[in-house]
Amino acid sequence: MTIVRRLLAGASVSTTIVAGLVATAPAAQASASSCTNYLAGKGYVVGTSVKKACRIGESGGGPSDWGMCVQLLVDIGVRASHAEEACNRA
């Protein structure tokens, strides 16, 4: 029985360590660079207009800034679903 108890104790310690690491991980930060990186990953050219839209989305002015971010991106040819996700990341 002592071997079983040692194995259970080792598993318990490992679980506690992993849980502690997850609990102390920093929260994801939204930013203009997250927005532009997402769009670049989707194959869009990240130029001045994209950067401007992402900065507006990042400004934190509420739904109107998010809507402006999306509209600016859609106006330059970004697919609506991609624009929405990008602005969520801004």
Score class of each variant (00 low, 15 high):
residue 2 T to E: 15
residue 3 I to K: 14
residue 3 I to C: 11
residue 5 R to K: 15
residue 5 R to N: 12
residue 5 R to L: 15
residue 6 R to A: 15
residue 6 R to E: 14
residue 6 R to D: 11
residue 7 L to V: 11
residue 9 A to N: 12
residue 10 G to P: 08
residue 11 A to R: 12
residue 11 A to H: 14
residue 12 S to W: 14
residue 12 S to E: 13
residue 12 S to M: 14
residue 13 V to Y: 10
residue 14 S to H: 05
residue 15 T to F: 15
residue 16 T to D: 05
residue 16 T to R: 09
residue 17 I to A: 08
residue 18 V to S: 03
residue 20 G to K: 02
residue 22 V to G: 01
residue 22 V to C: 04
residue 24 T to Y: 01
residue 24 T to F: 08
residue 24 T to E: 06
residue 25 A to R: 12
residue 25 A to G: 06
residue 25 A to K: 11
residue 26 P to K: 13
residue 26 P to M: 11
residue 27 A to G: 11
residue 27 A to D: 05
residue 28 A to F: 06
residue 29 Q to M: 14
residue 29 Q to P: 04
residue 31 S to D: 05
residue 32 A to H: 00
residue 32 A to I: 00
residue 33 S to V: 00
residue 34 S to I: 02
residue 34 S to L: 08
residue 34 S to V: 01
residue 35 C to R: 02
residue 35 C to D: 04
residue 35 C to F: 04
residue 35 C to E: 08
residue 35 C to V: 03
residue 37 N to C: 01
residue 38 Y to T: 01
residue 38 Y to V: 03
residue 40 A to T: 04
residue 41 G to A: 03
residue 41 G to E: 02
residue 42 K to H: 06
residue 43 G to W: 02
residue 43 G to N: 03
residue 43 G to L: 05
residue 44 Y to N: 05
residue 44 Y to F: 08
residue 45 V to E: 08
residue 46 V to I: 15
residue 47 G to P: 04
residue 47 G to D: 09
residue 48 T to L: 06
residue 49 S to F: 02
residue 50 V to E: 00
residue 50 V to G: 00
residue 50 V to A: 02
residue 51 K to T: 01
residue 51 K to C: 00
residue 52 K to H: 01
residue 52 K to P: 00
residue 52 K to D: 04
residue 52 K to G: 00
residue 52 K to T: 01
residue 52 K to R: 08
residue 53 A to P: 07
residue 54 C to H: 03
residue 56 I to K: 03
residue 56 I to C: 03
residue 57 G to Q: 06
residue 57 G to I: 03
residue 57 G to P: 06
residue 57 G to F: 03
residue 58 E to K: 04
residue 59 S to M: 05
residue 59 S to Y: 10
residue 59 S to L: 10
residue 60 G to D: 05
residue 60 G to C: 09
residue 61 G to D: 08
residue 61 G to L: 06
residue 62 G to A: 10
residue 62 G to F: 09
residue 63 P to R: 15
residue 64 S to H: 07
residue 65 D to I: 03
residue 65 D to T: 10
residue 65 D to N: 09
residue 65 D to F: 08
residue 66 W to S: 13
residue 66 W to F: 15
residue 66 W to R: 13
residue 66 W to N: 09
residue 66 W to C: 08
residue 67 G to D: 11
residue 67 G to L: 12
residue 68 M to H: 07
residue 68 M to C: 13
residue 68 M to K: 13
residue 69 C to P: 11
residue 71 Q to P: 04
residue 72 L to W: 07
residue 72 L to M: 15
residue 73 L to P: 01
residue 73 L to R: 07
residue 74 V to H: 07
residue 74 V to C: 15
residue 74 V to S: 11
residue 75 D to F: 10
residue 75 D to T: 09
residue 76 I to L: 12
residue 77 G to H: 10
residue 78 V to Q: 07
residue 79 R to S: 10
residue 79 R to P: 10
residue 81 S to Y: 13
residue 81 S to Q: 15
residue 82 H to P: 06
residue 82 H to C: 12
residue 82 H to A: 11
residue 83 A to T: 10
residue 84 E to L: 13
residue 84 E to S: 14
residue 85 E to W: 09
residue 85 E to Q: 12
residue 85 E to C: 05
residue 86 A to Q: 07
residue 86 A to K: 02
residue 86 A to C: 14
residue 87 C to R: 06
residue 89 R to D: 01
residue 89 R to A: 05
residue 89 R to H: 02
residue 90 A to S: 14
residue 90 A to I: 03
residue 90 A to W: 02
residue 90 A to P: 05
